[in-house]
Amino acid sequence: MIVQLSDIELTARTLVMASQILVILLGFTIVYIAFQGYRRNRSRPMLFIAVGFTLIIGVQAISAGVYVVFDVSELAAGAVSQAAQLSGLICILYALRMEG
């Protein structure tokens, strides 16, 4: 059975994919800037911010790819993504509470 997408559905999917790519690019830009701040000043908080954003953005991008390429259940991919996001947020919170 061939599924036909309407122009509106195709446009919506394209916009969602474009926004996801933009979020990933901005996230990795933050990671790069934070890591450069760590290297320049040996600031441990900046290192934890870089690690946190890497966990949030990187694992999200990887899990989306794994979900599409391999036959992984949506629940398993979501659980891994959620755990990575939680870990990343804990790293960022730790960095914000840490004394430089």
Rank of each mutant, 00 (worst) to 15 (best):
Q4I: 09
L5D: 09
L5V: 09
I8K: 12
E9V: 10
E9K: 14
L10C: 09
L10A: 12
T11H: 12
T11L: 13
R13L: 12
R13P: 02
L15K: 03
M17R: 08
L22S: 08
L22G: 14
V23Y: 14
V23W: 13
Y32Q: 01
I33K: 02
A34D: 11
F35L: 13
F35W: 01
G37K: 15
Y38C: 15
A50T: 10
A50R: 07
V51W: 06
V51Q: 14
T54W: 01
L55K: 07
L55W: 02
L55V: 02
I57T: 15
G58M: 03
G58S: 03
Q60E: 06
A64G: 08
G65F: 02
G65Y: 01
V66F: 11
V66H: 04
V68Q: 12
V68E: 08
V72I: 14
V72M: 12
S73E: 01
L75A: 02
A77L: 05
A77W: 03
G78L: 03
G78H: 04
G78F: 00
V80S: 08
A84L: 12
L86W: 08
C91M: 02
C91A: 07
L93W: 14
L96P: 12
R97Q: 15
R97L: 15
G100T: 01
G100A: 09
